[in-house]
């Protein structure tokens, strides 16, 4: 593939007794858009801080374009960063904020003028140049932060949950815009988020993080369709995981029922974990292949659909989304039949 721009080799970062990042290996390629996806506290920001140089690793090395930069201070790394809180300078105008990096690089005043203008145009803020950040809306501040980080053409763009502070509607608009800008500039980008939809929609590759480690690294489709671990499956929305034993290379015994599994090769006799998305589970009136009986434990009406939680005979939990109106009225405590399609299972490692 293409050249590696950022590389972490065995990076660990401890805060006292807390291991924020745990022996992490990661390579980011030229022009790639890579998402670090994981729940709050899993070490995403710390990973960015290691790359940016704000915190030194407790162990391990950081490389930029093949050079060991572990001991290089942040201002000499030539990266661009958009902070979770945007971190715009409140005492400077929008233009001065954007010009900051160029002034540090001693770019001639004329050229600063031109490039700041271009950058503000890129984020569609050419009219707000004189304003102070405090006078702008969240979405506009976000774009100033982006322009400020891009204007000096950094080697890598680091984004720490840039959309998290925006409201839902704005967030979706900004997401598309961010991707378009990244494409047009062609800059290598590392994007931190805890929102799986954001990661799936934006990235070339996703690194799913858990407790300071990368659980799975791959293209969005690969992560979505073939989650490697229970954690990944759960995190990207396949919230039912069933434990069973393979009885043939395409059959698994679960709760006294033999299920056909066509989506992965199994070795007979092995314990396996099968994940399935709630939207693939169907409520059916009668028996048949891959139909299990379950007792309804919870119902959450959500308008277009109802989220149904049920327990199998051996107490394993299954989640299903029932499209409304439901074929028959549902009640907690009643026994229902659920169809688990053979091709809907994801076999976890």
């Amino acid at each position: 593939m293409t050249t590696v721009v950022v590389e972490l080799r065995g990076c660990t970062r401890d805060y006292g007794a807390v291991r924020a990042v745990d022996a992490l290996d990661l390579s980011v390629h030229e022009s790639e858009f890579l998402a670090l996806l994981g729940p709050s506290g899993c070490g995403k920001t710390t990973t960015l801080n290691l790359i940016a140089g704000f915190v030194p690793p407790t162990a391990g090395r950081v490389f930029l374009d093949g050079d060991d930069v572990t001991d290089r201070p942040p201002h000499l790394r030539g990266l661009g960063m958009v902070f979770q809180s945007y971190a715009l300078f409140p005492h400077l105008s929008v233009r001065e904020n954007v010009a900051f990096g160029l002034r540090e690089r001693r770019v001639p005043a004329r050229e600063i003028e031109r490039r700041v203008g271009d950058a503000l145009e890129l984020v569609r803020l050419d009219r707000a140049g004189r304003q102070r950040p405090g006078e702008l809306s969240g979405g506009m501040q976000q774009r100033v932060a982006l322009a400020r980080a891009l204007v000096y053409r950094p080697r890598v763009l680091l984004l720490d949950e840039p959309l998290a502070a925006l409201d839902k509607k704005l967030r979706e608009g900004m997401r598309d815009e961010l991707r378009a800008i990244q494409r047009s500039v062609g800059i290598t980008t590392i994007f931190v988020t805890h929102d799986q939809a954001e990661a799936l929609g934006l990235s070339d590759r996703i690194a799913v993080m858990n407790r300071g480690r990368i659980e799975q690294l791959g293209a969005p489709r690969e992560i979505y369709e073939h989650p490697a671990t229970r954690f990944v499956a759960d995190f990207i929305g396949a919230s039912t995981v069933l434990r069973g034993r393979a009885v043939a290379n395409d059959r698994v015994a679960v709760a006294g029922v033999t299920l056909v599994v066509t989506s992965g090769a199994l070795s007979s006799g092995a314990d396996v974990e099968l994940a399935i998305r709630p939207e693939r589970v169907q409520l059916v009136p009668g028996g048949g292949d891959n139909v299990v009986e379950a007792r309804v434990e919870g119902l959450v009406y959500q308008g277009a659909q109802t989220e149904l939680t049920a327990r199998l005979r051996d107490d394993q939990r299954v989640l299903a989304l029932v499209t409304e109106p439901a074929p028959a009225p549902l009640e907690v405590g009643q026994t229902v039949r659920l169809h688990l399609p053979a091709d809907a299972f994801m076999v976890l490692a």
Binding site: P73, P74, H75, F83, S85, L88, F89, F100, G101, A149
Partner: peptide, 15 residues
């Protein structure tokens, strides 16, 4: 906000 000083450093400003 310490993030402001980090931001300045990331933009190339020496301490």
């Amino acid at each position: 906000d310490p993030a402001l000083e980090r931001a300045a450093a990331s933009l190339g400003a020496a301490p």
